Amino acid sequence: MTAATSITVRVPLAIRHRPGRKTVVTPMTDGVAPVTTRADPTLVKALARGFRYQRMLDEGRYASITEMAEAEKVDRGYIGRLLQLTLLAPELIELALNGGPDPIDPSMIGTKIPLDWNSQRAGRKAPRAK
């Protein structure tokens, strides 16, 4: 029987505190910096869920939002709000995924999003000054 051995692995990283969350920053490896994004993870997750729910409806997995809400064990209104995100102008979705400046006014999510993409662009918050 052999004696138990332990291995220590050291990973150099830094933890940066941002409002409401911590970010792990890895060092450069082989002269290549890690890919960073300023995308809001909550917004990206909401968009992904909205498109997932829309795909399930399109494929016929569920006949209605109510049926989907019961199966997914979430509120019907929550699914409805996420499905509205699929109607956003493509450039607003791209801004959100790429971490652009204020792609979507958060107040738009809780209300009915206008179907006209020009109205969506006009309702967008002005970019923050840096």
Rank of each mutant, 00 (worst) to 15 (best):
102 D>Y: 11
38 R>K: 14
2 T>R: 15
59 E>A: 06
62 Y>G: 01
36 T>V: 10
47 L>Q: 01
87 L>S: 12
116 D>L: 06
70 E>A: 09
124 R>V: 03
95 L>C: 07
31 G>R: 03
80 G>E: 08
5 T>S: 12
105 D>K: 11
66 T>I: 14
42 T>Y: 13
90 P>T: 00
96 A>E: 00
107 S>W: 12
9 V>P: 14
26 T>Q: 09
32 V>K: 04
108 M>A: 03
76 R>P: 04
76 R>M: 03
100 G>K: 06
42 T>R: 15
86 T>F: 03
100 G>P: 05
38 R>H: 13
85 L>V: 00
30 D>R: 07
3 A>K: 09
110 G>H: 13
108 M>W: 01
56 M>H: 06
27 P>Y: 10
5 T>I: 08
63 A>P: 08
73 K>F: 04
49 R>N: 05
40 D>F: 06
111 T>M: 12
93 I>E: 00
63 A>L: 11
22 K>Q: 15
87 L>W: 07
56 M>G: 06
54 Q>L: 06
69 A>W: 04
51 F>K: 00
88 L>Y: 03
127 P>R: 05
82 L>T: 01
116 D>H: 04
54 Q>N: 03
10 R>W: 09
9 V>A: 14
14 A>W: 13
126 A>I: 09
25 V>W: 10
103 P>V: 00
126 A>M: 07
7 I>R: 10
16 R>E: 08
48 A>H: 02
38 R>Y: 12
65 I>Q: 05
74 V>D: 02
27 P>D: 12
93 I>G: 01
3 A>N: 10
39 A>S: 02
33 A>W: 07
80 G>Y: 06
54 Q>T: 00
12 P>K: 06
6 S>I: 07
112 K>V: 12
113 I>F: 07
37 T>I: 09
14 A>E: 12
130 K>Y: 14
113 I>C: 05
126 A>P: 07
74 V>C: 04
23 T>V: 14
95 L>W: 03
7 I>Q: 11
23 T>G: 12
62 Y>I: 02
90 P>G: 00
40 D>S: 10
83 L>E: 02
103 P>L: 02
64 S>T: 07
86 T>S: 03
33 A>G: 12
96 A>V: 00
91 E>Q: 03
66 T>N: 15
13 L>F: 04
45 K>N: 09
88 L>N: 04
56 M>W: 06
88 L>I: 00
87 L>T: 11
117 W>G: 02
99 G>E: 02
113 I>S: 06
92 L>P: 04
61 R>I: 00
76 R>L: 05
51 F>L: 02
10 R>N: 11
80 G>H: 08
78 Y>E: 09
34 P>Q: 05
14 A>P: 14
69 A>K: 03
130 K>S: 14
36 T>F: 13
5 T>M: 15
58 D>L: 05
1 M>R: 08
44 V>R: 04
22 K>R: 15
53 Y>A: 05
93 I>F: 00
1 M>W: 10
97 L>D: 02
10 R>M: 08
46 A>M: 06
33 A>N: 04
43 L>S: 05
95 L>R: 06
73 K>R: 08
8 T>V: 07
32 V>E: 04
95 L>G: 05
47 L>W: 01
68 M>G: 01
6 S>C: 13
102 D>S: 13
95 L>A: 07
66 T>A: 15
71 A>N: 03
7 I>S: 11
58 D>Q: 02
93 I>W: 00
98 N>L: 08
